[in-house]
């Protein structure tokens, strides 16, 4: 293609296109098979074949270009207990990378045995979420990382003491100066942790299948995926992170919180952020990547088994009592979303 007149407006137009393509990678593959005909003699709306040709779940994107030194510093900070008030816990205490990026408890335990408000979400693909925390109150990983450090029920620290401790460690100070000209600052601490978190996502067998390796999934897992789409789970759990890109009500088809004995502040969900009544009981749809590793489930950690969590979702979000066989197959599919390697 040729541009005869390289005038500014033309340039701007082209830059605009560059921006466009930056966020929109359209998939242009043709439909995989022709849907069969319905009894009305028209193409059937086949549940296995959404109107769009590509799958509604996208493979894990490539990791962004990151500075390895910042990532290494972030990893160190992520495991550093000096970020808590009494030097007792680190980020990794609740987001154990070897356990799916969670702690396995219904709600996390903070400094001095304090009980947190919600179930710790996995950190493994947090970088793909559109916002952070169950109620989405943080827009970025950086904004999120500072939260637990200061939260009295979690690490209960204050920035001046944290910075002081880190500055006192000559090695740490050097590491900071090496990548951040202004040295040890709260902004740089969270920036390094955030960059480390951006380096964590690892592909699963399902990603291989999405990219064309038809043998990456067993028959059961494939059936489970079809059921996942047919029953409508896909309505919210879609995209590259299999969720994590929108807010949704917990209890669409029937009221979930009526079944609870007492409703906590955390149960109000996004209402706590916006103060709008229509946001009550609305949460960020969690990612299902590595979900098999992150029991117990839901924001309150109330359900220990994956199969039971699937059943609860079926009942309250889709209005159906899923047959046991379907639950088993869907759980099998969810297993295939576990990363094949640990970060």
């Amino acid at each position: 293609m040729t541009f005869r007149r390289a005038r500014l407006p033309a340039l701007v137009v082209v830059l605009m296109l560059a921006a466009l393509a930056g966020y929109f990678q359209f998939s242009g593959s043709p439909p995989q098979s022709a849907p069969e005909s319905s009894r009305y003699g028209l193409p059937a709306l086949d549940p296995e074949m959404p109107l769009r040709s590509a799958e509604p779940i996208q493979p894990l994107p490539e990791l962004p270009p990151l500075d390895p030194q910042k990532v290494a510093l972030g990893r160190q900070l992520f495991h550093d207990r000096r970020l808590s008030a009494d030097n007792s816990i680190s980020c990794a205490s609740c987001h154990d990378l070897s356990r799916g990026g969670v702690d396995g408890r219904p709600v996390s335990q903070g400094v001095g045995g304090a009980r947190g408000d919600v179930n710790a979400p996995s950190v493994l693909t947090a970088s793909l979420n559109f916002r952070q925390f169950w109620d989405g109150r943080a827009a970025t990983l950086e904004e999120q990382a500072g939260g637990p450090i200061l939260n009295p029920k979690e690490m209960a620290a204050a920035w001046p003491e944290v910075i002081e401790r880190l500055e006192a460690d000559a090695g740490m100070k050097r590491a900071f100066m090496g990548v951040y000209p202004d040295g040890v600052t709260p902004d740089n601490v969270v920036a390094a942790i955030a960059d480390f978190e951006r380096s964590l996502p690892r592909p699963s067998r399902f990603d291989r299948w999405l990219r064309g390796d038809r043998d990456a999934l067993s028959d059961e897992e494939r059936q489970g995926y079809q059921l996942f789409k047919k029953h409508g789970c896909i309505g919210c759990h879609q995209g590259a992170n299999v969720g994590g890109n929108l807010f949704q009500r917990f209890g669409i088809m029937s009221h979930y919180f009526n079944t609870k004995n007492s409703i906590t502040q955390a149960d109000r969900g996004r209402y706590n952020v916006t103060g709008q009544e229509e946001d009550r009981y609305i949460f960020k749809v969690p990612s299902l990547r590595n979900v098999a590793l992150t029991a117990p489930y839901f924001h309150d950690g109330s359900v220990p088994r994956l199969e039971d969590a699937v059943a609860v979702m079926g009942r309250y979000q889709l209005g159906i009592n899923l047959p046991a066989r379907d639950i088993g197959l869907i759980a099998a599919f969810l297993q295939s979303l576990t990363s094949e390697t640990l970060p």
Binding site: A19, F24, R52, F130, A139
Partner: peptide, 26 residues
């Protein structure tokens, strides 16, 4: 582009919200 995404989502031409979310962030 965001409007285009909204149209696509509205008509089930597309089922995932990644690109709309990315547009919002950008």
């Amino acid at each position: 582009a965001a409007n285009l995404e909204i149209m696509k989502l509205r008509h089930r031409h597309k089922l995932d919200y990644d690109e709309l979310a990315a547009a919002a962030r950008r």
